[in-house]
């Protein structure tokens, strides 16, 4: 009886989590002309069509650019910040932590609106520039948090040992600290990449004419054309995210860091 209840709950939960994903895969594989489930016959034509849509190609490249460079920038800022917060008794450390975490606490709509109102409109930032800054800010909290937790596991006396063997503080960081938090940095990169790539609310405000991230572009596309290509693209993106996480998990036990 007990076993039956447990399996039922487990089954429902899995269906709830994985169900939409299955629906999307099949909806995209439809032979019909409109988005529907169950699909109107099976074909791969929508999966192929996705690659021929010019605006998807452009917005994909923009999203890829934002995810890679936004995350790298966030790491360049976040790793030293995490290090300083972790190793030094900084005045106002708690405040800094809160400010750094703000972009994930404040709703994306507000972040987007604020950036639009105070950066793009009055300062005449380009849309791409504003998107880049927004994505960097959104990823920064993850970078700081994930890298902090791997720094926590690294004893400070290791750096002192390196210094006594002749390292400068900087060399101690690059030769001893960095190699030992490599896993955390890579995990932060992947988490940041996925967060940035799937970001909607902030990008919604900042996307301008001709400059759209992929999720926004997909939304816009669906408003006009209700065909299964969006479902096909969604499935492809989900596969991309899955494979990144899968490879990371295989390489370095990604789940330890998140």
């Amino acid at each position: 009886m007990r076993n039956l209840t447990t399996s039922t709950i487990l089954g429902l939960t899995l269906t709830f989590l994985i169900g939409p994903f299955i629906i999307i895969i099949f909806a995209g594989a439809s032979a019909g002309e409109t988005l529907a489930f169950p699909p109107d016959g099976l074909s791969l034509k929508w999966y192929l069509k996705v690659f021929t849509i010019e605006s998807f190609r452009e917005s994909f490249l923009l999203s890829l650019f934002l995810a890679i460079f936004g995350t790298v920038t966030a790491l360049l800022l976040g790793v030293p910040a995490a290090y300083a917060l972790n190793r030094y008794d900084l005045p106002g450390a708690e405040t800094i932590r809160t400010v750094v975490a703000a972009p994930i606490i404040v709703p994306g709509i507000i972040v987007g609106l604020a950036l639009l109102r105070y950066l793009v409109v009055p300062l005449d930032f380009t849309v791409t520039m504003a998107l880049f800054m927004a994505h960097t800010a959104l990823v920064l909290p993850y970078a700081v948090r994930v890298v902090s937790s791997s720094l926590n596991n690294l004893r400070a006396d290791m750096e002192e040992a390196a210094v006594l063997l002749g390292c400068t503080r900087m060399q101690a960081f690059t030769k001893v600290v960095l190699p030992n938090i490599r896993g955390g940095v890579l995990a932060a990169f992947i988490l940041g990449f996925v967060t940035s790539f799937n970001q909607v609310p902030v990008s919604l405000f900042l996307s301008g004419p001709g400059v759209k991230t992929l999720p926004i572009d997909m939304l816009a596309y669906m408003e006009i054309t209700y065909d299964p290509s969006v479902a096909a693209l969604s499935a492809l993106l989900a596969f991309m995210s899955l494979s990144i996480v899968f490879v990371a998990e295989r390489l370095l036990g990604f789940s330890r860091y998140v």
């Binding site: 004893r155 290791m158 002192e160 040992a161 390196a162 006594l164």
Partner: peptide
Amino acid sequence: ANKRGIGLVFQSYALF
């Protein structure tokens, strides 16, 4: 400290 030529064996060993 990195110019003194002194060795220190830490209590926790502090190996890399």
